[in-house]
Nucleic acid binder design. Structure first.
Lengths: 144, 144
DNA sequence: ATTCTTATTGCGAACGATTCGCAACAACTA
DNA sequence: TAGTTGTTGCGAATCGTTCGCAATAAGAAT
């Protein structure tokens, strides 16, 4: 598969090695594009190889983050942090309070925010972290 | 001062008591409107009364949050959570990567986002958490 | 293939932030 | 002023994450 090959090369360029734990973590992240907690990732990884240690999962994630392959985000103060593949595009998160679904939303909204801040306030936005909690369309109609 | 009186009443209405730790935490939050870590709050509180325990600060904050008097937020995955007075108005946070300043920004931007999501996606936004990291106007001109 | 180098692992201990249980204490009530 | 019970300080417990280290294995060289 071309994706795993790409990972191996990216790692080798930095003098890193493609190992079992890293491969498994990478697979899990790619398979479910969703936001995963470390606990969830570990659980998935263990289905392929129960001998992989949690520390290694943390270390793999940290390495991937350093390579800008994944992104750490938190969808709420009470929640632990979650991990997802790093999307190159601007996007934000819609969290439905009812069904718990987390939608990635790509679109011009983030660009609009960036421009608004640049023009209006002279603030050069680099990272825009937008998490919106509310009720999604499906739950709004399904209820009441 | 009317604010402390207000606090006492709010507490009493729930059968809670206005105590030394709660008062001190409340004072600190009001004095510096900024985002404070628990560590900072504890440190400030100790200037008034070093015998106040950290647990009590946590408990006071939790109580205030329950009363919607304060808001817990985090300005980055690596950072611990921070506390601020709950502003009734929509606002968001501009974090300058250079000088570290955190600006609260009130304005129509959050309202625009809310409308964008409602009209475009049928998503009823309730809580909008927007943290923007970048370079503020002052640092942009001061540099280079 | 075999050997060598050293990045990486698993393990368990350490860590920091937050929470908990509990007996002593103090805020409000009558 | 005494009684009721919400709150405190204390220390232990918990949780997620990180660390140190000896053993292991990935990739390069032969």
């Amino acid at each position: 598969m071309s994706k795993e090959k790409g990972l191996a090369e990216l790692l080798r360029d930095r003098g890193n090695r493609l190992t079992e734990p890293r491969l498994r973590v990478w697979e899990v992240l790619n398979r479910s594009g969703d936001h995963l907690t470390v606990e969830e990732i570990v659980s998935e990884v263990h289905k392929a190889d129960p001998s992989i240690n949690t520390s290694s999962v943390y270390r793999s994630l940290a390495l991937f983050a350093d390579l800008d392959l994944v992104r750490e985000s938190s969808l709420g103060v009470d929640e632990g942090s979650r991990w997802e593949l790093a999307h190159p595009d601007d996007h934000f998160h819609l969290v439905c309070r009812i069904c718990g679904t987390v939608d990635h939303h790509e679109g011009d909204l983030v660009g609009q925010i960036r421009e608004h801040l640049a023009v209006g306030h002279g603030f050069a936005a680099e990272e825009i972290d937008l998490v919106v909690t509310g009720v999604c369309a499906r739950c709004a109609t399904g209820e009441a």
